[in-house]
Every structure is written in structure tokens, then in C-alpha cells.
């Protein structure tokens, strides 16, 4: 529809919305109002995520599990999501990992978007049962595969903080792919 107006910052107006029709009124109709709104939050991540974030500061990836359980969760919230029981045992996982899913991104948006095309992916750190999110680097986007073995590339030591941004991206390592069969339940 030619009357559509662009409502996103995507190139070429990927998202549009039908033009607004306003009933006849005297004078110029109000079609849009801008109402500034902001709220400040002092977010506290909690016990578990604090342990995880402090680990990242040491270039370590910490998962947790309930005592006696096998499954180690990483990027978790203090409970085993299957049983609801608190995870009190800290287990270091990775740093090497396996790609369990990926997506070739052709339209980047947001201030931190890498140059396109880039590959976002889920990374199953060795020893963990759930994957972490990140981007793949140092490899052509059409060479990325499910099952590919990777390692994290960290920011310089003096730039380490308690943040996932400590991992700049993940890059392939010289190990054979993990067969998709073995990734069942993790994809």
C-alpha cells in the first residue's frame, strides 16, 4: 500500500503501518504525540547470576546444579528448571563449546550490531546442558555448521568486567564436529 508509512529504522522500511485516517476536524489533526518516558532501575541479578558474572570477570564460565544431579545449567536463575530445586553446586563448564543452532543475519540493527552478514548462534559449553547465545567470528558465514567446535574469544584482560560482553565472539577450533545425534535434547 503506497499510503503505508515507515515505522521502523530498518533499511527500506521493512516494517510499515497503514496510514492513519483522522475524522474531519477543524484545523490540523493531531496524528501523533510524543510523550517522553523514562524509568531508572537498579537491577540486582541475584545470587546465582552474580556467581556467573563474577566468573566471567575471571574468564571462567560457571554453571550450577542441584547436589547429586547430573544436569549443569549455565545462564540460569538459581533453580533447576526441571525440578524447581535450588542449584547450590557450582561447576565450571567450557570454555570450549559446540554450536547447536545458528542464524546468518543480513540486516543488523542496534548500536552494537556487527557488520553484516554475521552469524549469531547458540553455544553448548562442554559440561553444560543448555546453550549460551553469542556470535561466531573468524570464519566465513557459509562455513558455519551445527556441531562445529568453538572457543570463546575474550576481550583484553584490562577490559574484563562482570558482563557477557567479555566474550567478543566464538571462533572455530581444530576439532572434529560433534554429530548432531549427540546434540539431541540440546537443540
Amino acid at each position: 500500500m503506497s499510503d503505508d508509512r515507515t515505522v521502523s529504522t530498518f533499511p527500506e522500511g521493512v516494517w510499515t503501518q497503514p496510514a492513519v485516517t483522522v475524522p474531519a476536524l477543524e484545523g490540523e489533526p493531531v496524528q501523533r504525540v510524543t510523550i517522553p518516558a523514562s524509568m531508572r532501575y537498579d537491577y540486582s541479578p541475584g545470587l546465582t547470576q552474580t556467581r556467573f558474572l563474577r566468573g566471567l570477570e575471571q574468564k571462567k564460565i560457571y554453571g550450577e546444579r542441584t547436589p547429586g544431579a547430573e544436569d549443569v545449567y549455565v545462564s540460569h536463575r538459581g533453580v533447576d528448571p526441571v525440578t524447581g530445586v535450588p542449584t547450590t553446586e557450582v561447576v565450571e563448564v567450557g570454555p570450549n563449546a559446540t554450536i547447536t543452532a545458528f542464524c546468518v543475519v543480513h540486516i543488523g540493527f542496534g548500536v552494537n550490531a556487527p557488520p553484516t552478514p554475521f552469524v549469531s548462534a547458540l553455544f553448548l559449553a562442554d559440561g553444560a546442558v543448555v546453550s549460551l547465545y553469542g556470535t561466531v567470528g573468524e570464519v566465513e558465514y557459509d562455513k558455519v555448521r551445527i556441531g562445529m567446535r568453538v572457543e570463546p574469544v575474550w576481550v583484553d584482560d584490562d577490559a574484563l568486567t562482570t558482563s557477557m560482553e567479555n566474550i567478543k565472539y566464538w571462533r572455530p577450533i581444530d576439532e572434529p564436529d560433534v554429530p548432531a545425534e549427540q546434540l539431541k535434547g540440546h537443540m
Binding site: 540486582s44 541475584g46 545470587l47 546465582t48 547470576q49 536463575r77 538459581g78 533453580v79 524447581g84 535450588p86
Partner: peptide, 25 residues
Amino acid sequence: AAGLSETEMIEPAIRQALDQVGATI
């Protein structure tokens, strides 16, 4: 509850509500 996430804060109450009648999810 500054040191806790919402999940960590409510989990003991959910657990107790179930436990005190011998129920599981």
C-alpha cells in the same frame, strides 16, 4: 531483597506451599 533475583526470592515460598501438604508439581 537486594541479593536475590525474583526467582530466588519466591522459590522458598513455592517450595513451602507444596511441601507442607506433601505435594509436588
